[in-house]
Structure formats: C-alpha cells, structure tokens
Design a protein around this nucleic acid. Structure first.
Lengths: 121, 121
DNA sequence: ATAATATATGAATGATTGTTCATATGTTAT
DNA sequence: ATAACATATGAACAATCATTCATATATTAT
C-alpha cells in the first residue's frame, strides 16, 4: 500500500472550501491521463473516424478504403499505420493486398456509444 | 427521402469482392465524422482529461483546478474555455470566483467507459 | 478611489499533425 | 527478368495546438 504524495500548495482558494487532497486522490494519475488522451486522440480525426466506421462493417483492403473515403492511397496507409500502432486495427495479408479490420472491441463500444449520443443529442 | 449520391469509381479492387456502395451507405456521413472527431478531440489532451477527471467529482474554481493540476492559471482558463465552447463544461459565477462543472452526462459516460477499458485492458 | 484578488484573453512560440509527393518494398503475372 | 499492381514509408509543408507572457476585465475590501 503506497501512500501517494499529494503536493498541494498551502494556498487556500478563498472562494471554495474544497479539500483538494481528497479530490486529487480520486483523480486519474498522470499516466492514466496520458493513456486516455492518447486513445481519444486516435479517434479525433475525421479520416480515422471514417476508416473505423467502414471497418465496423467488414475488413477492407487499402485500395477499397482509399476509394471509399475518396482520398489518396498514401494518406490512407499512413492513417492505417497510426491505427495499427495504437492496436485499434489489425492487418491480414493476402497476396498483394492487405486487409485491415478492427482489432479492439473496446474501441467499437466507445465509438458506437459516442455515435449514439451524438445522434440524439 | 433523399437518395444519397454514392460516387464510387469504376475501379475494381482485384483483391476483394466487396460491394463498396453497400459499405459506403452504412458509413457515417461527412458531417457525423466531423462531429465525432471534434468530440474525441476535446478529450484528446492530458490537461483536459485531468480537468474532466477532477470535475467528475465536484465543481471546482479555476484556482483550485490550477493547483490540482500544477499548471498556470492561464493555461487552465484557456482549456476551460475550450471545454465550455464544446459544451462539455459549464460555469457558475460567485463573486470573484468562477466554478466549473461538467455539463454533459454523455461525456461522463464515454469518459468512464473508456477509463474502465484502459484499466482492465 | 485604490489595492488586492480571480479570471479571461490576445499575441507569440515551439511542437505536433495530416496530407502530398516521390519513391521503396513486396507480390504476381508474363 | 520485366512489368504491373498493392502497399509502405520518408521528407516536406501548411495547419493546428497547448502553453506562456503580458495585460485586461471584473469583483470585493479598505
């Protein structure tokens, strides 16, 4: 059981009677905050959103994704690499073509939950 | 009932027998993709994640948030403005101090769901 | 009015990002 | 071996971003 060092300065916010140490203890730590931000960042670009939305239905090759999104093959490849590094997407190679599909059901849940919320906002 | 124009090029991906029009119809449209990306972008920065994580517990004034995160007041104010523009956070003014709290339970759900997934990943 | 406190904001800056272009790698067919 | 095709990748560039600094606004106390 480690006692987390809480470095709250002596300053008292006159406008509040909040116990800052208490709040700090329950906050996400530095590393979790970074992880959360990193994951959300992966979903924070329209191109990547569309890629995920397409692969939500079925695995697709780079060329098809490129056609679907109306974007250059290079741009698609770069973004797929990004998503792959984040382990959001996985590859399957078949001859010349490479098929991509979603690798993480967590992402799928988060994506769909957020989509729902946006729909009946 | 508008028929959505699906501009799939004649190119056939040799490596796949996918009906691209079908996939395209089920994909999120341009505007939804932008909205999704915009929302996720709001959560894609460690500072904003920590702010939300703090306010998940209770409303807090700018000064307290500044102390909690160990960051300058200006940086905090700028990010709070961002979150407020996104309607993720709301203000309550009391004398000199301004209290911020979460404005959107959707965000809370998405945030907590993602946090859970990261924990037992 | 003046000082003190809390927050907001515009400008500047360094860092990161998404796309494009050119080219490389890898696979299949001839 | 050569050509054709599918994908990957490095460099470059414009655009966006998060923070800092200086300063402005607003509120309260003296």
């Amino acid at each position: 059981m480690e006692e987390q060092a809480v470095e709250i300065c002596d300053d008292l916010c006159v406008g509040s009677d909040v116990n800052l140490s208490m709040v700090k203890q329950k906050m996400v730590d530095e590393s979790s905050a970074a992880d959360l931000a990193e994951l959300f960042k992966a979903l924070s670009d329209p191109t990547r959103v569309k890629l995920i939305s397409a692969m939500l239905q079925q695995e697709l090759c780079v060329h098809d994704l490129s056609v679907l999104l109306g974007m250059g093959q290079s741009a698609i490849s770069h973004q797929l690499r990004y998503l792959r590094n984040m382990r959001i997407v996985k590859r399957r190679k078949s001859g010349k073509t490479v098929f991509y599909s979603l690798d993480d059901s967590h992402i799928e849940e988060i994506f769909l939950l957020t989509l729902q919320h946006l729909k009946h906002a």
